[in-house]
Amino acid sequence: MTENTPLLTVNDLSVVFPSPKGEVCAVNNVSFSMGREKIGVVGESGSGKSLTGRAVLRLLPPYARVGASDITFKGRNLLSCSEKQMRKIRGMEISMVMQDPKYSLNPVRTVGEQIREAYTIHHKAGKKQARQKTLDMLKAVRIRNPEQVYGLYPHEVSGGMGQRIMIAMMLIPEPSLLIADEPTSALDVTVQLQVLAILDDLVGERGMGLIFISHDLALVSSFCDRVIIMYGGQIMEVVDAGNLHKSNHPYTKGLLSCLPKIDGTQDHLPTLVRDDVWLKPVPGRVNGEAAS
């Protein structure tokens, strides 16, 4: 694969759910292409951010109807991959950190055992060595007392620790693409940046691609290279991250205006005023569903 081949290309991706009121098009004609870079995905709740990530990995419920004219990863057509091939890609090549880490962990096994097991699946290692690697990984994601955390059950770790544990797990196979869905929303600001710095290094040094789904516009604009802004299942615009605050799109401007500011007033914050003219019409779409 040459320098210029994109890591991931997605064209005309749609996700449709059946519903009593007719079909709901939750993701609608989404197209983008990325290299070994950091792409942010922002947009209000329900705008289709998570579904877009999950659709690439084919991690959707069976009743979801997914369509695309092209999903190519490292030159491979993912649309023609069998379920078995996809499982291999999910395990080795593309990792996804899910929005709710605690649901992804097994509640009756300690977090240490779970990471260690993931490690032994991907690397030849004895029990002792795998344990040491696990402790190293916990330390790498800035967990202070790895020995102690190793023996905790998922319900005993704080929200922020849970997120870092998931990130550690997902990095074990050394994926070429990491899809991180709100991976740091429960972390305090300092640890959040330190964890992002780890991901940044993987992008810079190993050439990993990162899709970073987040509600935090300020963070995305300072961390990512480019930002995809989604509304109602559609891409409104793709901007260079540093220029996010200069956007002229009324939706992007609306999102930015909702943010409280450290040196702001304590008066009422503006909320979004949505406009269906931003959406391209779709046949069969139940209007207003996505902006509920």
Partner: peptide, 8 residues
């Protein structure tokens, strides 16, 4: 856990 508009 909320988006910026709902947070507001």
């Amino acid at each position: 856990a909320l988006d910026v508009s709902i947070q507001a």
